[in-house]
Design a binder for these strands. Structure first.
Length: 876
DNA sequence: ATACCCACGC
DNA sequence: GACGTACGTGGGTATC
């Protein structure tokens, strides 16, 4: 017949999905994570395999025929969590909707159903694909049956054919049951031979071929201990083999004919997805036309109206439509107003020529509600229109309410609040290379719809901010900050292009030499930047030891190479090549690409609504990761200069702000005292952790203590700390324990924070910035652990972010008050960079320090250091 | 276009 | 025991 049959191990995939994904629930409060994960897998299979026959097999009931052989079969296994059990009926409904047969049979497991059907199908000459997460299924691999096992995640699979099975495990499919018989399987409580694991089992099979072979030629088994184990557990081994052998002659009530799959009805599946809340999967349904015009909310956008003060009211939603992300360079395509007079669309030319609009824009008492205040204000500023009175930013409000939401645009927020009739920008304008400006009517209508929604969304979001006690945070921190950040971006940073190009040329020469030396060592030319090519050269051709592997091959990361450096001269050359190559591509070429041609300035964009902790991020260019640690890289900073003659770069940074915040929030006396007395905090920590007096702290002890403090601040794990210190995980954990013993209130604070996260579902900063941590109650150890560390870390890092943001607002006001020309141009998490006339430096030193140190009142003092110079490099 | 590896900052 | 582990941005290569 030559059919294509796909058999899915339903329980296995559902389990995988359940544990791989956070416990999502849909708007009806029904848990859907397993169904969701299963569905993504299913869609992928349908796309890749295009089967004409398909079946999802499930396990039935508690007992199976295997329990007669072995009463303890699957004993000790955790009960299926109810959160998962309740998803099986939902999953089966969904399969019905897809028109995919599913089946279960008393006394049998899904494996047996799959084995029986696969065998039958093979006999007919069909091609079979089995999907599971269970390695037992590998015994079904044959020339006509392929088994695909999930590895990490759900949709990530390994494909096994007889050849690849041989390659990966060095055994044939018929040996799989022998392997399991020997090594057992703890998850199914299959004993195997205790003390024999995968390694030994594979070795035995390589020598003897089968379990029977081992015992027939028993004298040839090497090792007394091993022999003993095999002898005493012979019975268990043979029973195990019987248990893991898949039954291939199950008396099924269905036939292959019944598994025929004819494709699904798009409308049916779409409705199911919508009920389940799988909005993100809608686009993957074949033949679904999304966002049909009929469903969209109607909007009456008036074009060509006269832009007079009659339509410019006290409270107006204002949309500036720009197609590209970069509002510093991309033009305004439309300006749309929505208020109680209606929805009105204009071109930027119409706006520029309207005196009424200019007056309204400049009037701080006329409230403007916008999406992305910074973008809006900067865009107008570029067209010479100052905008005041921007009182509500939907983007920032949504971000504060829940930063974990990755899409804060108007269509997405509308959707979450139950309004579906508004298409996304992507749907209207296309994405990537296909993005294009549609005709005016389409563009205006889309922008109009957003303006209309914005007007409605505002009150919802205000309500949520109020519930979260975030009104202050919103109105007095993020909103004013947006305006300041806009000014900073618009001002930009002057770049010494000539200097940058010189550095580039010098680097080019050095890279060429190093490249040649590497080729000489390797004996051939290859792409040094390709780990895929570099790996075989180092670890095969040159025979260097393999210390670490990645998913796809050899790891060639810096920490690995550093360990290999004594082994071969090529290593240090590669590390240098990497270092200089990074400078060249990212910091020389990358920077030059975004320097404004006429002004020689770069205008970064600070993303104020992205990070989960409240920090800012910076793009195009990212000015928050300019090299500083290595001298070679640090020189890049020589290319950042003041924009005016006789001015300097002035940098001010908080010293240990996170640890000071921790001292404040935990109330730990020892830590507080450290800061009050101006001690070196790392030395102090070292003296505590290593239990020596401060004067006996060695440089190395201080270095280790610094890493511990770093770990506390960034919430890294014992593993992370062990990596950065190059010690064992146990030793790292011991440092952490010693730290908590020395600073008991810190420990108490951390425990309290985690407890609060578990109870309330979120943690908060000093200024009520919030982060939800659904995983703190996860049954998955890793997820839970990561979430707990996040719970401890976010209030610290987030509060530090709150503090510097407030300092920026205060400083901006203070500079105005003092009539200083100095201007903030950058923020790098705990550091503010200004440019200023030389003459102001003395006053600035005092003013900036005072403002930054006094912006909040903590139980410990904040300490600010400053520096200045002709370039950013010299401000050190 | 997307995934992966690597590397820079705090 | 759990095998993966702070937050970001960006460049390069390889693959689909």
């Amino acid at each position: 017949m030559g059919n294509k049959l796909v058999l899915i191990d339903g329980n296995s995939i559902a389990y995988r999905a359940f544990f791989a994904l956070p416990l999502l629930n849909n708007d009806k409060g029904v848990y859907t994570n397993a169904v969701y994960g299963f569905t993504t897998m299913l869609l992928k299979i349908l796309e890749e395999e295009s089967p004409d026959h398909m079946l999802v097999a499930f396990d039935a009931g508690k007992t199976t025929f295997r329990h007669k052989t072995y009463g303890e079969y699957k004993g000790g296994r955790q009960k299926t969590p109810p959160e998962l059990s309740e998803q099986f009926p939902v999953l089966q409904d969904l399969l019905d909707g897809f028109g995919i047969k599913h089946y279960q049979l008393e006394q049998y497991e899904a494996d047996d159903i799959i084995g029986t059907l696969a065998t039958e199908a093979e006999k007919q000459g069909d091609e079979v694909t089995v999907i599971s997460g269970d390695k037992d299924l590998l015994q079904l691999v044959s020339d006509h049956t392929t088994v695909r096992l999930t590895k990490k995640g759900i949709t990530n699979v390994d494909t096994y054919t007889p050849t690849s099975l041989k390659e990966k495990m060095e055994i044939g499919p018929e040996q799989v049951i022998h392997l399991k018989a020997l090594m057992g399987d703890s998850s199914d409580n299959i004993p195997g031979v205790p003390g024999v694991g995968e390694k030994t089992a594979l070795k035995l099979l390589k020598q003897f071929g089968t379990l029977e072979g081992v015992y027939e030629d028993f004298d040839a088994v090497s090792g007394k201990k091993l022999k003993e184990k095999l002898e005493t557990n012979k019975e268990e081994a043979f029973m195990s083999k019987q248990l893991v052998t898949i039954e291939k002659e199950v008396p099924l009530e269905i036939t292959l004919q019944d598994t025929t799959y004819k494709g699904y009805e798009a409308a049916t599946v779409k409705e199911q997805f919508q009920n389940l809340g799988f909005e993100s999967l809608l686009s993957r349904i074949d033949g679904v036309v999304e966002s049909e015009a009929a469903e969209m909310i109607s909007v009456d956008v008036k074009q060509g109206a006269e832009l007079t003060k009659e339509i410019l009211t006290e409270e107006t939603a204002l949309i500036v439509e720009i197609l590209e992300d970069n509002y510093h360079t991309s033009p305004i395509e439309a300006v749309v107003l929505s208020n109680d007079k209606g929805v009105f669309a204009f071109s930027i030319d119409e706006v520029k020529e309207s005196d009424a609009f200019r007056a309204w824009a400049a009037d701080a008492d006329k409230e403007k509600w916008v999406f992305d205040a910074k973008r809006t204000v900067v865009a107008f500023k570029r067209y010479g229109i100052p905008l005041e009175g921007v009182t509500f930013d939907v983007l920032l409000a949504s971000y504060l309410v829940n930063p974990a939401v990755n899409n804060h645009d108007i269509p997405a927020i509308s959707h979450r609040l139950g309004e579906t009739g508004i298409p996304s920008d992507e749907e209207v304008y296309g994405k990537g290379a296909k993005r294009a400006r549609p005709e005016d009517s389409v563009l205006y209508e889309h922008a109009g719809r957003k303006a209309l929604m914005l007007y409605r969304l505002k009150s919802d979001l205000e309500e949520q901010l109020k519930n979260n006690k975030q009104e202050d945070l919103f109105h007095h921190l993020e909103m004013p900050l947006a305006i300041i950040l806009g000014e900073m971006e618009y001002t930009g940073v002057q770049v010494d292009v000539k200097r940058l190009k010189e550095m580039g040329e010098e680097l080019e020469g050095r890279l060429k030499e190093i490249r040649q030396r590497i080729y000489d060592h390797a004996g051939e030319e290859f792409n040094i930047n390709s780990p895929k090519q570099l790996g075989p050269i180092l670890f095969e051709k040159l025979g260097l030891p393999v210390l670490k592997k990645t998913k796809t091959g050899y790891s060639t990361s810096a920490d690995v190479l550093e360990q290999l450096a004594p082994e071969h001269e090529i290593i240090s050359e590669i590390l240098l090549f990497r270092q200089l190559g990074k400078l060249q591509s990212t910091y020389i070429e990358g920077l030059l690409k975004v320097v404004h041609e006429d002004t020689h300035k770069v205008h970064t964009r600070f993303n104020q609504a992205l990070t989960q902790t409240g920090r800012l991020s910076s793009t195009e260019p990212n000015l928050q990761n300019i090299p500083i640690r290595l001298e070679e890289g640090r020189k890049i900073r020589q290319a950042f200069i003041p924009s005016r003659e006789g001015w300097v770069m002035f940098a001010s940074d908080y010293s240990q702000i996170e640890l000071r915040v921790l001292a404040h929030m935990s109330g730990d006396e020892k830590l507080i005292q450290s800061f009050k007395e101006g001690e070196d905090v790392h030395t102090k920590t070292a003296s505590e952790v290593f239990n020596v007096s401060p004067e006996d702290v060695t440089a190395d002890m201080r270095r280790q203590a610094k890493a511990v403090n770093f770990g506390i601040v960034y919430g890294i794990s014992d593993y992370g700390l062990s990596q950065s210190l190059g010690v064992t995980r146990k030793a790292a954990q011991a440092y952490i324990d010693a730290y908590f013993k020395s600073y008991p209130k810190v420990k108490e604070y951390m425990d309290d924070t985690v407890r609060q996260a578990k109870e309330e579902g979120f943690v908060e900063t000093l200024m009520h910035r919030r982060r939800y941590l659904p995983d703190v109650n996860s049954r998955n150890f890793n997820r839970r652990n990561a979430a707990e560390r996040t719970a401890m870390n976010t209030p610290i890092q987030g509060t530090a972010a709150d503090v510097i943001k407030k300092a920026m607002i205060d400083l901006s006001a203070r500079l105005k008050e003092e009539e200083l020309e100095a201007t903030m141009i950058l923020q790098v998490h705990d550091e503010l960079i200004l440019e200023a006339p030389k003459e102001e430096v003395e006053q600035l030193t005092e003013v900036v320090k005072e403002v930054m140190e006094e912006t909040v009142d903590l139980v410990v003092p904040l300490q600010v250091d400053h520096s200045y110079g002709d370039t950013w490099f010299d401000a050190k």
